[in-house]
């Protein structure tokens, strides 16, 4: 059973009120939702709070979950709306512009060796920092499109902007991101 059908099964069981399925669902998607929340907050503890809020919202609405291929875009839409609400509420405490790379807990890297893992973690830290430098809409497009792999139509639907805007902004945002990463690398003597 692949991940997609596994998730579809979990979704159906959760809709039916299966508590064990809900726990399995949380374990399966918590990494993705936490990563998405982190891309909005830029702060680890805030991202945990936000991810928990998203899960509570999902749990409360589990009777209305869409099924099949509509679920993941819907999930991201809910997460995105919740994140925007969260940032609005926390506007007095603005998210950090720079990311503390030390606080990023990385998943185990498939590359063997501590050095390779450290390089990979460093690389991801650079990417996070560079992402924080993008404008909010460009960052959202890159995160949804390139990080989480949604297609442009889904991204346009989630963000509520025209398809063409997503396409053009996505290209510019990628180049801008690459430039920022290179600049950060040079600044740290990695270039």
């Amino acid at each position: 059973m692949d991940a997609t059908s596994d998730l579809s099964t979990l979704v159906e069981r959760c809709r039916a009120g299966d508590a064990l399925a809900w726990e399995a669902f949380v374990r399966q998607v918590q990494g993705r939702l936490f990563a998405l929340a982190y891309s909005y907050t830029g702060h680890r503890e805030d991202a945990r709070d936000l991810a928990q809020e998203i899960f509570v919202r999902l749990y409360e609405a589990r009777g209305q979950w869409p099924s099949g291929g509509e679920f993941l875009p819907w999930l991201f839409r809910v997460a995105r709306n919740r994140s925007v609400d969260y940032l609005r509420r926390r506007s007095v405490r603005r998210p950090a512009v720079t990311v503390d790379e030390a606080e990023i807990v990385e998943l185990p890297d498939p590359a063997p060796g501590a050095e390779a893992q450290a390089i990979a973690a460093d690389r991801r830290g650079l990417l996070h920092t560079a992402l924080r430098g993008l404008s909010a809409i460009n960052r959202e497009i890159v995160v949804l499109r390139d990080v989480h792999g949604l297609d442009v139509k889904q991204v346009a639907s989630i963000l509520g902007i025209p398809l063409g805007t997503v396409k053009s902004r996505a290209s510019r945002a990628r180049v801008e991101l690459a430039e920022r990463v290179l600049a950060l690398s040079r600044g740290r003597g990695d270039a």
Partner: peptide, 15 residues
Amino acid sequence: AVLRDLPRLADMDPG
């Protein structure tokens, strides 16, 4: 490199 690395940000350990 950015396009190659970005998908790796899709999953983070919440702790």
